[in-house]
């Protein structure tokens, strides 16, 4: 393929799909914008290098999703650390918190904090299953593990999220 075709296709792909990759990266990194941007940049660079393979894959978005997850897990292996979020004010008492979570910003911060308490692979399992809406088999293939592992990791993650978010937010039971 000619370099100009590769470039044009890649730019079109970035324009269309970068925002979604950035949102996924934001969840995977529990709201760390700088790390999320790094993940997306690394992912897109890999995609450009492998573009002939990406375009042959019939599902470039799926390819990007898998690459993003792998980059995240590889990074996590190198440096998994639990970050403390700096907040302007001390946490509000529970009674007030319930009102505040109605605000999107507060809710977002609460969810990202809860995600931040998960190990990287559990966080990836939650994002793949419940944000990308992939099924257990698809998630297992991306994470290179068994379907049983996906189920157990997701269940552990959901228990943690429930415990972290309640009582302000009650997660619906997932069948």
């Amino acid at each position: 393929m000619r370099a100009t075709d590769r470039d044009a296709e890649f730019v079109e792909f970035v324009a269309e799909h970068r925002p979604v990759l950035m949102q996924a990266a934001r969840l995977l990194t529990a709201g760390d914008h700088a790390q999320a941007e790094d993940l997306v940049q690394t992912t897109l660079t890999k995609l450009y290098v492998q573009w002939p393979k990406v375009r042959r894959s019939d599902n470039p978005v799926g390819y990007a999703r898998r690459s993003l997850t792998h980059v995240f897990i590889d990074e996590g292996r190198r440096a998994f650390r639990s970050r403390e979020r700096v907040v302007a004010e001390p946490p509000a008492p529970d009674a007030r918190r319930e009102e505040q979570v109605a605000d999107d910003h507060e809710l977002r911060a609460s969810v990202l904090d809860a995600l931040g308490g998960l190990p990287p692979r559990q966080r990836a399992a939650v994002v793949l299953r419940h944000w990308f809406d992939l099924d257990v088999d698809q998630t297992a293939r991306i994470l290179n593990c068994s379907t049983g592992t996906v189920k157990s990791q997701t269940a552990k993650a959901l228990r943690h999220l429930r415990a972290s978010l309640e009582p302000a937010v009650t997660l619906k039971e997932i069948p």
Binding site: L27, V111, L161, I174
Partner: peptide, 27 residues
């Protein structure tokens, strides 16, 4: 729904501007 929560948490404030040409240059 967890799905709704995640979409809220992943949403940006519209501040995620980007330049695809920068990604192209890195690639």
């Amino acid at each position: 729904d967890l799905n709704d929560l995640l979409h809220t948490a992943g949403r940006t404030d519209g501040t995620d501007s980007f330049d695809a040409r920068a990604d192209l240059a890195r690639g």
